[in-house]
Amino acid sequence: MFLEEQGIHCPYCGEYQTVFIDPSDVEEESYIQDCQVCCRPIHFHLTEEFDGSVSLSTSHENDS
């Protein structure tokens, strides 16, 4: 398993943090993970791009 390092800003507290994603597991397109700083639930959404790369977006837990 190859993990890819991504930098994000928490949608709640705004703190920058590094997370690791598994680009080979895009089938599990979204998941919840707690912020490493404020411990609030961040919604992660993975999308496979046309060139095969993986895009990561984050939002509040209750945002669609």
Rank of each mutant, 00 (worst) to 15 (best):
M1F: 10
M1S: 14
F2Q: 15
L3F: 11
L3Q: 12
L3D: 09
L3G: 06
E4G: 05
E4M: 09
E5M: 08
E5F: 05
E5H: 07
E5I: 10
G7V: 10
G7I: 09
I8S: 02
I8R: 00
I8G: 02
I8T: 03
H9A: 08
H9T: 00
H9L: 09
P11H: 10
P11L: 05
Y12T: 01
Y12G: 02
C13H: 07
C13F: 08
C13Y: 07
C13E: 04
G14T: 07
G14Y: 08
G14V: 03
G14M: 01
E15R: 11
E15Y: 09
E15P: 00
Y16A: 10
Y16E: 14
Y16N: 12
Q17P: 01
T18S: 15
T18N: 06
V19P: 02
F20A: 13
F20C: 08
F20I: 03
F20P: 09
I21E: 00
I21N: 02
D22T: 01
D22N: 14
P23E: 03
P23F: 08
S24R: 12
S24M: 09
S24F: 08
D25V: 03
D25C: 03
D25K: 09
V26F: 07
V26G: 04
V26P: 02
E27H: 15
E27W: 12
E28I: 03
E28T: 12
E29M: 10
E29K: 15
E29A: 14
E29G: 15
S30F: 12
S30I: 07
S30E: 13
S30G: 11
S30N: 15
S30V: 04
Y31P: 00
Y31S: 07
Y31G: 01
I32M: 05
I32H: 06
Q33G: 03
D34H: 11
D34W: 04
D34G: 11
C35P: 05
Q36P: 05
Q36R: 13
V37G: 08
V37N: 10
C38W: 03
C38Q: 06
C38M: 07
C38Y: 12
P41Y: 04
P41K: 07
P41Q: 10
H43Q: 10
H43C: 01
H43F: 03
H43S: 06
H43Y: 04
F44Y: 10
H45V: 13
H45A: 09
L46A: 02
L46F: 01
T47A: 14
T47G: 06
E48C: 06
E48S: 11
E49K: 15
F50D: 12
F50H: 15
F50V: 15
D51N: 09
D51F: 03
D51S: 00
D51I: 00
D51E: 03
G52C: 05
G52H: 09
S53L: 10
S53W: 08
S53T: 15
S53A: 11
V54D: 00
V54A: 08
V54L: 07
S55A: 14
L56S: 02
S57L: 04
S57T: 15
S57M: 11
S57Q: 13
S57D: 13
T58I: 07
T58V: 15
T58E: 02
T58D: 03
S59M: 03
S59I: 02
S59L: 04
S59K: 10
H60Q: 13
H60G: 09
H60K: 14
E61G: 01
E61P: 00
N62W: 12
N62P: 05
D63M: 07
D63E: 11
D63F: 01
S64P: 04
S64L: 14
